[in-house]
């Protein structure tokens, strides 16, 4: 599961460019700063590599790894 913190995101879209599986796309939802947030549209394709977490300059992405 991918959680995006709308308070921290500044809408730079680096996550859209870095994801090797093209999971993210631009949504039409805005946060309080009028920034268009990214949206994990193709979430089934996510391999939980963590590259988006590492590349997010604003520490806004969390990829939940389901380990029981």
């Amino acid at each position: 599961m991918i959680i995006i913190d709308s308070k921290l995101c500044k809408g730079c879209d680096i996550c859209i460019a870095t994801c090797p599986k093209k999971v993210y796309s631009k949504s039409d939802k805005v946060n309080t700063k009028n920034v268009y947030l990214p949206f994990p549209e193709n979430e089934e394709g996510c391999t939980k590599c963590g590259l988006c977490e590492l590349s997010c300059p604003d520490q806004a992405i969390y990829v939940k790894k389901e380990v029981e």
Binding site: K10, C12, I14, C56, P57, D58
Partner: peptide, 15 residues
């Protein structure tokens, strides 16, 4: 959130 502009590389270097 920190003062860096949207898309600034400093946050990535921090991570």
């Amino acid at each position: 959130p920190h003062i860096f502009c949207p898309g600034c590389g400093n946050g990535i270097v921090m991570n």
